[in-house]
Write a protein that binds this DNA or RNA. Structure first.
Lengths: 149, 149
DNA sequence: TAGAGCCTTCGTGTTACACGAAGTCAAGCT
DNA sequence: AGCTTGACTTCGTGTAACACGAAGGCTCTA
């Protein structure tokens, strides 16, 4: 049996977060002793790990709550849990694709700056570009190739 | 010259956001007419696009502000702008990696549920697993392979 | 003269906590 | 008995980036 402090250390959450989660009902197995102190057994710790995991992957607390409640309802809710997870997976995938696009864009951006810094022109065949580009801040800032996207 | 409403339509931002950004100084080229009305020229629209872009990629408004200010300071700040962008790119890359991990984890999770739904056991060679797994909610919720990570 | 459209400031709500303060317990040690 | 500790509670503020609405004022136009 662990206290809030220990649970926090084990899971890497803050004590605040641990209390927050338990108070929201995301750790169903947590108990209180006669002094009203939260006691976490191994299952509670697992729940905390799980909540942390889902939260990190971008699932809102409300949805996590729904999921936990479904778990508590028993095996009959497995299809609903599956659906919920699938939907969340789709969202995570969408975010992944977005992240890829962002990185690609920033690669472009930094490459442009690198060209300017190293070759003093983004287009080495046209040195006249330099001043032009440096003064068209919003073009360096927001290149044409992105505008299409 | 465009009004707030038009600028919002063109950029896909809300009017609220457009006013917010201009008030924060993220759209340096914006002007006011004699009736105190914001007027956006093409450069302003470009800035709005750029701000939107950076914001979407996860850059905080404060940092965008810094970047804009550097742009306004002139060509001498190009190295600093480059550094800023590189740092932001690194962050975006880190987020990308995180997103990949999340998706991988959720693939596992949904696959597990799919097994349960289709074969009635995650390990078909051991049917006895079924009840066990269904009752160890936190194990379905948070599988051992993830704990290692 | 009324309405439309712009402006302003103000204030609340959102998400998931962080952080601190204040005040209350109970247990253990000296 | 008293002190320290560690846990608990509620309260309130702050964060980021707006969303949304209200109130009130301005100007232009039909």
């Amino acid at each position: 049996m662990h206290t809030v402090k220990e649970a926090a250390q084990i899971t890497g959450l803050t004590e605040h977060a641990v209390r927050f989660y338990t108070d929201k009902g995301l750790v169903p197995s947590v108990q209180r002793n006669e002094n009203n102190i939260r006691l976490f057994d191994e299952e509670s710790i697992n729940w905390l790990h799980g909540v942390k995991c889902l939260k990190q992957s971008g699932m809102p607390i409300e949805v996590i709550k729904k999921y936990v409640d479904l778990c508590l309802e028993g095996d009959s809710t497995i299809p609903q849990r599956y659906t919920l997870m699938m939907e969340h997976k789709e969202e995570a995938l969408a975010k992944l694709e977005e992240a890829k696009r962002h990185v690609a864009h920033l690669e472009e951006k930094t490459a442009l700056y690198q060209d300017i810094l190293e070759h003093r022109s983004p287009d080495t065949t046209n040195p006249g570009n330099w001043d032009k580009i440096l003064h068209m801040h919003s073009d360096v800032f927001y290149s044409p190739s992105v505008r299409k996207a």
